[in-house]
Write a protein that binds this DNA or RNA. Structure first.
Lengths: 340, 340
DNA sequence: TTAGCTTAGTTAATTGGTTAACATATTTAA
DNA sequence: TTAAATATGTTAACCAATTAACTAAGCTAA
């Protein structure tokens, strides 16, 4: 057996080895210009030799900053949202990559009650928060009360003085409409979430309507359906009763995928009998047959921007205007000219 | 303006308000039986009134335990793995749910170098680690050197004295083979990852072979393909040249989905001309047409077991035998009797 | 020459909670 | 009636950093 090495070297150990005070070591670690080059070199080499790694816990306690940010996925919505959607893995990976460059670590939470939230935020002393979608007023009260910088994703309310990131849903809807119109469709339907629940979908519908209006058309049919595979699946039966409709714009890819699936089972050929366009550009768009034409949002960019905005927010730079990403049209095989 | 409340109450504040020592407050918080009911009640009510929330950072520092566990997704593999696979969101959600019940928070990391790893583990003082798949020997050396309890997921090496969770790949392969045999198939192909890279897939192939051997058959064709949509897509051309093959078992759903897609483009009808069975049971299995028959692994259970095993490992209870989950057959519409 | 400024450090309080060791007061047992 | 045991606390060292305030030596300029 060799010497029993202490499992972790502290600045005290380094200081003792070099023969200086712990403060000197701390100054070197933090790049403060208070130590001579000679001493600095000695400290640095002792640190390397002894395998020194800073104890973030101690730093957090003494500085009153945790260098920890929380990303929260609410549990009150349908659990489908998380497991269905590669969106979250992809967002998280890109967010983490960016925020970790700045020395922050990411903690995740699936919280339900305001009490859970408070415990989570306060006990860990989170420096910042990323919130998805809508939370209850009680939860917002907690967040606001503790003055934790936070950013909103896929949700925007002018009432909140917070940075937020969203996609230009209206423009997305417009692009979808334009695409269908250019293909020659006249009777276009929209399938989206219940209006009061999904502001996002109603914006997408507005965009569609704007495109239709430009050419003197209007939405032929507006179906409400939950934002799930089954929601789209069930909508197919209604569509089957409206043979005059030659194209559908779905507020989400997942709905479009469910719709296509059932349509095919009902002998409705896509895109020959019915053109379908979605929104999001999930990976699954390329798996389905025919591959789904859709409006793409750039998820990696969203993750990166979320990190950038949160970093700014933590410095007190809050941009009350939502940061809006521009969606793009991705044409695949689920849309074509109408038959007649 | 009201009174300027201190932003966070500490045990000192509580102690002062009640007129006891901070230690008494600490004992109450930790349920130590050292304080009279009367005093305890006073402390508890002061805590409630002053909105006391424990400072985990201070607890971590003084106890030398962070109550933080890390879940690490390696970056060196194809990024597809993460964004393609709802597996990770789903695993994470269930893992977090279970581990948070025991007072741990989850921190995520996408680490690359051994140095990144070391900084991550040591500086936050992580109490435990969840690792996915295979890491470099240098990274394992770091982990072992710091004696952090960890568990392995989807990877098992008897060399490591660590708990691990995997699925019974061999049994899964057997179930797939059995299903195809019972449908009457005689010429069955296998598509999987390169043998040296994917131990998992070779186990699955072994299971298939075992089932075939029971009825005096053997694998008609073994194709190697990367575990991606494109890997499956490209394999379809080879299969087209082998009309005698009536069924394929793919080592992963994603490969099966790519294969089905191209097969349909090549006018190979599924399941009439070719039965396809996958492995994993991704959500996408129900999106594709026809819905994919597959071997299911119970992801929520996997997340929960990962948490349970990690909790045990942190108590020093390491089970060197891998914990093996049993896969099940999920029959959908991509498999049927062969035409002839 | 001497007051004043740098440079290169050190000292010690602070962050919030834990816990071993100690101190009384009260109960119990002999 | 005492000694021992129990109940109910308090004190203070400790965890690993940070940082304001202090110090001493060396240098500069008038």
């Amino acid at each position: 057996m060799g010497k029993t090495k202490k499992s972790k070297a502290s600045i005290y150990d380094i200081a003792q080895a070099v023969g200086v005070s712990p403060a000197a070591v701390s100054y070197v670690i933090n790049g403060k210009d208070k130590v001579s080059e000679k001493t600095k070199a000695k400290i640095l080499s002792a640190m390397a030799e002894m395998g020194y790694v800073v104890n973030q816990t101690a730093v957090s306690l003494s500085r009153g900053k945790s260098s920890l940010v929380g990303v929260c996925f609410p549990l009150n919505s349908s659990s489908l949202v998380f497991s269905d959607n590669p969106f979250y893995s992809e967002f998280l990976a890109n967010f983490e990559k960016e925020i970790s460059k700045n020395g922050y670590d990411t903690i995740i939470g699936y919280l339900q009650t305001p009490q859970d939230f408070e415990r989570w935020i306060v006990s860990r002393g989170l420096d910042g928060l990323v919130l998805f979608g809508l939370y209850s007023p009680e939860i917002f009260k907690i967040i606001l009360a503790h003055k934790v910088p936070f950013i909103l994703t896929d949700f925007y309310d002018p009432e909140f003085k917070a940075s937020s990131i969203r996609i230009d849903d209206e423009k997305g809807g417009y692009l979808a409409g334009k695409h269908l119109i250019e293909l020659g469709h006249k009777n276009i339907a929209f399938i989206g979430g219940p209006v009061e629940a999904s502001k996002v979908d109603s914006k997408r519908l507005e965009g569609l309507n704007a495109a239709l209006k430009e050419v003197g058309l209007s939405c032929a049919l507006h179906l409400e359906a939950p934002t799930t595979f089954d929601g789209g699946y069930n909508a197919a039966t209604v569509l089957k009763e409206h043979p005059e409709i030659t194209a559908v714009f779905c507020g989400s890819d997942i709905v479009a995928i469910g719709l296509m699936r059932h349509a095919q089972e009902l002998q409705v050929s896509i895109p020959d009998d019915l053109s379908v366009i979605g929104f999001d550009d999930l990976q699954a768009c390329t798996y389905v047959y025919p591959a789904l034409t859709t409006i793409r949002q750039n998820i990696p960019l969203k993750g990166q921007l979320a990190a950038d905005n949160l970093l700014k927010a933590m410095k007190g730079e809050i941009n009350p205007d939502p940061q809006t990403l521009t969606p793009t049209l991705v044409v695949r095989n689920s849309t074509s000219k109408p038959r007649f």
